[in-house]
Nucleic acid binder design. Structure first.
Lengths: 220, 220
DNA sequence: GTCTATAGAGAGATAGAC
DNA sequence: GTCTATCTCTCTATAGAC
C-alpha cells in the first residue's frame, strides 16, 4: 500500500501532544489498511499494533475498543471524500461541468486511496436494512449534497434531467470501486494493475460516458 | 431471503441417503445466507446449525471444517452461474445477441440470488495478488469461456471489436453487484428495493447500453 | 504514554455415546 | 446421523506498574 500518510482530521488532535497525535494518526493508517484487507472481524488489533510499533494494550489508550477504532477509520476516510466532492460540486460553473468534475474527483480519490475501495465493498456487504451499518450515517450527508446540487434552480441540466440521484451515484460508485478492487484479485496471474494511468483513464472515459447518459446530456 | 431452495449439484450426493442429502443441502443454503450477510469470520457455525435445526457438532459430519463448508458454498453458487452463462454464450445465433443475452442472464441470476452479490463483494475485498482467494479458481474458467466466445471466427462482432474481456466483465459485474447489494444498505430509510421489476429493468437497460458501447456495436 | 500480565468470552473442532 | 460434553486456541479488553 503506497498511500500518502493520512493526516488526522480529528479536531481534538490539536488538544493532544504532538507525539500522541502522531501515534494516533499512525494507528488510523495501519487500521485502515488492515480493516480493508481483512475486514472488521478478521483484522487483529495485534497486527495493527505491530504495524505501528507499539503493544496491543496501548491501542486502548487512544480508542476505547475495536469498534471505536473502526468508526474513526471510517470517519477519517469518508470525511476526506466528502470534503473533496463538496468543493467540486459546490463550485462555480455550469452544473454539467461540475457533475463531471465530481465523477472525475471520485475516481481520483479511489485510485489514490485504494484501501477505501475495499472498506466500501465490506461496508456494503455488511449492511442490511435492519442493522444499519456505520457507513449509512456518513453517506446520508453526501446524498443530500448531490440532491441539493441536482435541485439547483436555473440550470438547464437540472430541469432537463429527472435523474434519480440514488441510481446515478450507485452505478458510478459501484463500477469504480469494483474496477479498482476486483481486478488484481480476480486475475492474480496477469499482474493486472488497475491503478496504471492508462487503465484509470480508460475507466474514467467509460464512467463519464455513463454519467452523461444518465444525466441526459448527450451520448458523447 | 426468499430464495428458492437450492438443489445440491454435488454429484456425490447421489451416493448419500436422501435424508442426508437434504440436510447437506439445507446446510449449504443457510451457510450461503450467513456467509453472505456476515462474512467468513463473523459468520458462526452455531447460527448455521440453528438455521438448519441441528447442533453445531453435526455440521462436521458433512464438512471437515468451516473452510470446506465455505468452499462448498462458493462452488455451488458459482457452478450454477457458470452453467447458466455457458448455455447462453455457447448457443446459436449471432455473437452480439448471445453477448447481450449473457448480460441479461447475469443480471437475472444476481437478482434471483442476491446473497451471491454479497459473497462476491466479500471475495473481492478479501483477495490480494499475494494470497489468491478461492474465488479466482472459479472465475478462471469463466474468463476462458468469454475469451473463447469473443475469439470465435467468422462473426463480424468478433473481428470488429478488440474488446478486453477483463475490462468488459469487470464493469458489468461490478455495477450489477453493487446496484443490487448496496442500495438497501446505503438507503435504509427509503425502503429502496433494487429487486423490484422496474428497478431491475432500468438497471438492465443501463448495463446493456454499457455492454453495447464496449463491444462497439453502436450507441443504442 | 507505553508496558507486562492476565482475565474472560467466544467459537472452532474433537471424543464418544446413542 | 445427530447428540452432549469438553478441549483448545485466539483475541478482546482490563489492571496496574513504570
Amino acid at each position: 500500500m503506497a498511500d500518502a500518510p493520512i493526516p488526522s482530521r480529528d479536531p481534538a488532535s490539536a488538544r493532544r501532544g504532538l507525539r500522541a497525535g502522531r501515534t494516533r494518526a499512525a494507528i488510523l493508517e495501519s487500521a485502515e489498511r488492515l480493516f480493508a484487507e481483512r475486514g472488521f472481524s478478521a483484522a487483529r488489533l495485534e497486527d495493527v499494533a505491530e504495524a505501528v510499533g507499539i503493544r496491543r494494550a496501548s491501542l486502548f489508550y487512544y480508542f476505547r475498543d475495536k469498534a471505536e477504532l473502526y468508526d474513526a477509520v471510517l470517519a477519517d476516510v469518508l470525511g476526506s471524500l466528502r470534503e473533496r466532492l463538496a468543493s467540486v460540486l459546490l463550485g462555480a460553473g455550469p452544473l454539467a461541468e461540475r457533475a463531471e468534475a465530481a465523477v472525475s474527483a471520485w475516481i481520483d480519490f479511489v485510485a489514490a486511496r485504494p484501501a477505501f475501495a475495499r472498506l466500501l465493498l465490506r461496508e456494503v456487504a455488511d449492511g442490511s436494512p435492519a442493522h444499519e451499518p456505520p457507513l449509512a450515517r456518513h453517506v446520508r450527508p453526501f446524498f443530500e449534497l448531490v440532491g441539493r446540487v441536482l435541485a439547483e434552480p436555473g440550470d438547464p441540466l437540472a430541469r432537463a434531467a429527472p435523474v434519480d440521484p440514488v441510481n446515478l451515484a450507485s452505478v458510478i460508485a459501484g463500477s469504480t470501486v469494483f474496477f479498482v478492487a476486483a481486478m488484481p484479485t480476480l486475475l492474480p496471474g496477469l499482474h493486472f494493475d488497475p491503478l496504471q494511468p492508462e487503465r484509470i483513464e480508460a475507466h474514467r472515459r467509460e464512467v463519464l460516458g455513463i454519467a452523461r447518459r444518465l444525466l441526459g446530456s448527450g451520448e458523447s
